[in-house]
Design a binder for these strands. Sequence first.
DNA 1: CTTGTTTTAAGTGTCGACAATTTAGCCCTT
DNA 2: AAGGGCTAAATTGTCGACACTTAAAACAAG
Lengths: 224, 224
Amino acid sequence: MELASEKPITNADRTFYQLRKDIVEGVIEAGSKLSETELSTKYSVSRAVIREAINRLMSCHLVERKANVGARVVALTLSGLAELYQVREALEGMAARQAARSMPEAEIAELQILMNDHFERVKSGDTYYQEAGDVDFHYRIILGSKNQHLISILIDGLYHLVRMYRVQLGMAGPRVTTAYDEHRNIVQAIANRDEELAELLMRRHILYSRNNIENKLRLSPSTL
Amino acid sequence: MELASEKPITNADRTFYQLRKDIVEGVIEAGSKLSETELSTKYSVSRAVIREAINRLMSCHLVERKANVGARVVALTLSGLAELYQVREALEGMAARQAARSMPEAEIAELQILMNDHFERVKSGDTYYQEAGDVDFHYRIILGSKNQHLISILIDGLYHLVRMYRVQLGMAGPRVTTAYDEHRNIVQAIANRDEELAELLMRRHILYSRNNIENKLRLSPSTL
DNA sequence: CTTGTTTTAAGTGTCGACAATTTAGCCCTT
DNA sequence: AAGGGCTAAATTGTCGACACTTAAAACAAG
């Protein structure tokens, strides 16, 4: 995933993005230890750069560090997933409400165009949709809230962890078309400036999504 | 403010806490530039330590940095205050709801004892209450939610910024007794395990608090 | 005097080395 | 053989120096 606003300037930026990607995608496995010296050789940068990257990853809740001991990639747990989606429900619900209030008409129009594009992909059974499409949808709603704190908490903080759960627990199943309909309805509520409904639908959408993941976990024990 | 869980281990910890305190209390004024070399001499640590501290302050949204240029303390603005309290309303509302669901009986009992203590202070006109007491109250509700993400976002992330606004805009006025009553009612709702009411009262409490600050700002132009 | 360019200095980004702490292995004691 | 304390290796925390970028000062041309 690449966000328009995330252009690496310094080496630390690049390393941070790379590390984050490798953690989210499981190239560096969940729960494993992050050795600074090891990483510095692997990514061809100094330890200072690695340390800064790790510090930033801590802010994202992707790694945890104990002083004088070291950093570990977070472990994926059922309770952690539940807590994460609880917060998401509240925050993205609020984002949808704010978007219904503050999103400029032009941005809503663009969002509707995006939805049409998604429709084509869903129709043709494009698996692309599940991952990037969903992210893109939520991403735009969040930005539409126009609340800097909210944007930062969700985009910089929680979203990569959400993706980590989704990628590593193999979310590819078919909630695609039903999720698409939910997206569509949320956009409609925002276009109608119906704050109440936008929040309600978004909260429900995320709740469904959570139930979907948890059911999948109950069926295939996975490694949790 | 000192939180039980925040015991400085490394030099970077100490420096981070000190810097944060100085920023929140206005010793380092809002909007001012943070020179790494200057700070490193002032706080008697190396630039690496200062850099780590600044990075952590960025996570708290207390400073902003531009690559190759430097870091500045955030500016206090009316819109920023509004956005902050909007997010607070959603998150602390959720915290109150979760606390009503998950807070252990023993913790609720302690909270009620704390409220009695606060009552004594309010009765005797203790100005201590306004600051530390309020923080302490909210702090406990947040911890009572038992949601790690929520706790981290609020305590590590937003709370110090909230305090910064309150301290620097001179919140000493009398919302003390009425705020106390609101606190009391929230605790009661939590004790009754009334999730709905706990969230509602907390949201309203924060909304009142926000109105109070904004009114105060309208009366005394301040420097915003 | 103004504008655009070059130079220069101040400040950040990065690095390798050293100091302090933790952990694991070894030895000694019981 | 089991447990505790000591030693040594590995890892993190901290430091000062160097490289690079940016912004301001000095300068030249119009």
